[in-house]
């Protein structure tokens, strides 16, 4: 991490995931081999905090940009960092097809169930009953559809080798997230194909909860819609 303090709200999960990525890259001695692609959303400024090569991408096109980089530089570690708006809404086609091509990249997908940067609108991952600025009352299935489970969708693609959903609600879960990120990077170095780690992450600001309550909400509610664990590649890996 660079010295700059982040712009994230108090208790935002992005800071934890940012740090875990840096820790893994340091431990694997990959900092000088890494090119990361930042999304549009709260984490667009990730490049202000990471001390390795980073590029921006247009909203949702993050995996397409990563594809271009990785194909040109196949021996570098290339990963995308995406939120749920970037990955599961506007960038659905890009993520599905990068997976389907078995693109040898890693994706760190931070799912906080809301558009934070633009003011708390409904995301594809917003839970039924969750309040957002664009779902008067709350999200209703009959009007707004259902929380989109990208991981489960991608599990059927042969090019996708490893999918794990984790969270950051406790030191134990933080450790699992770190291990999952590490595994994803190892899979890429072994040239096995596409892998993705989805991190259920708190947005205290737009959930209207304090940071601690936000963590409990993930444990009690969010995991019911988005179950934790290895979704694909449990017996697979370096």
């Amino acid at each position: 991490m660079k010295q700059a303090p982040t712009h994230y709200c108090p208790g935002c999960g992005h800071g934890i995931v940012h740090r875990l990525i840096c820790e893994v890259l340091d431990e694997m001695n990959l900092k000088e081999k890494t090119v990361a692609v930042a999304p549009v959303g709260c984490s667009v400024l990730a490049y202000d905090y990471w001390d390795f090569d980073t590029t921006e991408a247009a909203h949702g096109r993050t995996p397409a940009v990563a594809t271009g980089i990785k194909r040109v530089l196949p021996d570098r570690l290339v990963f995308t960092y995406q939120g749920d708006g970037d990955l599961a809404a506007i960038g659905t086609a890009e993520i599905i097809h990068s997976g389907n091509r078995g693109e040898n990249i890693s994706t760190i997908f931070v799912n906080n169930g809301v558009y934070g940067m633009t003011g708390g609108q409904m995301a594809p991952t917003t839970l039924i009953g969750q309040v957002s600025t664009t779902t008067p009352g709350s999200r209703r299935a009959d009007r707004d559809g259902y929380p989109l489970k990208i991981m489960e969708m991608m599990a059927v693609l042969p090019g996708v080798v490893y999918l794990e959903r984790t969270t950051v609600t406790s030191p134990k879960e933080v450790t699992k997230t770190k291990n999952a990120i590490k595994r994803s990077f190892e899979i890429q170095l072994a040239e096995e194909g596409f892998s993705m780690v989805e991190v259920l992450s708190p947005c205290p600001t737009y959930w209207g909860l304090d940071p601690s309550q936000s963590m409990r909400r993930i444990e009690n509610e969010v995991v019911k819609a988005f179950p934790l664990g290895v979704i694909k590649g449990g017996d697979h890996g370096p």
């Binding site: 397409a64 980089i69 599905i96």
Partner: peptide
């Protein structure tokens, strides 16, 4: 060189963005 038939025009031009970022003539 690299040839990719992309899933969309959006993706194609952004792959070119990525390839250019990595230094390739694209």
């Amino acid at each position: 060189g690299v040839f990719i038939q992309s899933e969309s025009e959006l993706s194609a031009v952004n792959m070119v963005f990525g390839a250019a970022v990595a230094g390739a003539r694209s």
